[in-house]
Amino acid sequence: MAPPLLSVRDLSVRIRSGESIVHAVNDVSLDVEEGEIVGVVGESGCGKSTMVKAVLRLLAPEAEVPSGSAVLAGSGDLLALDHKRLRQVRGAHVGYVSQNPFGALNPIYRLDRQFHNLVAAHRKGTSRGESRRMAAKMLDAVGIAGPDRVLDGYAHQLSGGMAQRVVIAMSFLLDPRLVIADEPTTGLDVTVQRQILDMVAELARADGRAMLLVTHDLGVVAQYCRRVVVMYAGRVVESGPVADVFTSPRHPYTQALLGAVPRPGQPLERLPGAVPDLRVLSEGCAFAPRCRSAFDACSVRPEPTPGGDGRTVACHLEKEPADAAAR
C-alpha cells in the first residue's frame, strides 16, 4: 500500500496561558490517504482546530509543539521544514480553508490583488492577467456568478457565503493534493452551509483531492467523509471508517456523542459532566469521570489500539470486555 498522503504521529501542542500550561493536543496520530475525505469531530475545545493549525504551523507564538511529526508525502515532515520550504508547501501542496472567511481575507486590498499575490508567491513571474484568469475560472467553479465584479471588489462587500466561496477558491487555486478545512461553514446559515459543503466535497472528489475536514457536525461527517477521527480532551479516542464507527461506536465517548444527535421519536441522551480542565494532564483516561463504564483500569491512560479492521480505539474496554461486563 502506498504511504498515506498525510501522516500525523504523536502530535502534542501546549499553550502557555498566564502561569499555567494548557495541554491542548496530546499524542494525536492520524492518516489521510490520497483522495479521501477524513473528518475530525469533537466538542468545542477538544483541540481539533489547534491540531490542524499545528500541522500547518499556524499556531500563535504562545503555543509550542513539544513532540510529533506531520509527514506530507513528497514534502517531508511539515513540522521540521525550514521556512522557505514550508512556505512553498503551504498553499501549493496543502490548501487551507479557515473558519471565518471575513477574517481570512485582507480588508484593504482588492480581491484581484490577493489572488495575484497568491499565484505570484508560488509561480514566479505570473502576470496579473494570467492570475486573474485563473482566479476567475476558480471563482466560477466555486459557484460565484460574475467573478469579475467580485475580483474588482473588496472582502467587506461580500456576503458570508460568498466570502467563504472566495476563500475556498483561494485554497483550491493552485491545485493542492490536500485541503485542510477548519469548520468551513461556522457562522453561515444552514442552507448556505449545505451548499458550501456540497460544493467543496464535490470539488475535492472531482479532482481526487484529499481533505481533512474539521467539524463538530456529525451529519456532515456522515455525509461527506470516508473516515472519521473522534477527539476528546486533546486526544484521539476513536478512528475508523465512518460507516463502521457510526453504526457500531466502540468508545463510550463516541457512543455518547452519537447518542446526543437528535433523532425523531427518540429521547435525547445527555452526557453528564463537563470537559476536563486541560491545564491538568490527567494520569488516567480523560473521559473516565464522565464515563458510565469506567472501571479500575481507567486510572491508567488507555493507548490507542488498532483493531485490524481499520479502526483504532483508545479504551480499556477493548482489552478487557469481560472485566467490564462483570461490573
Binding site: L56, L58, A60, R87, R90, G91, S98, G103, N106, A121
Partner: peptide, 26 residues
C-alpha cells in the same frame, strides 16, 4: 501580525514580505 487574515496569508504560502505588508496595511 497575529490576525486571521495574516494567519491565512501565511497558510496560503504568501511571501513573508507580502505577509508583513498585509499586516501593515491593516
Amino acid at each position: 501580525l497575529n490576525s486571521q487574515q495574516v494567519q491565512y496569508a501565511r497558510a496560503l504560502g504568501l511571501r513573508e514580505r507580502t505577509v508583513l505588508r498585509y499586516a501593515l496595511v491593516e
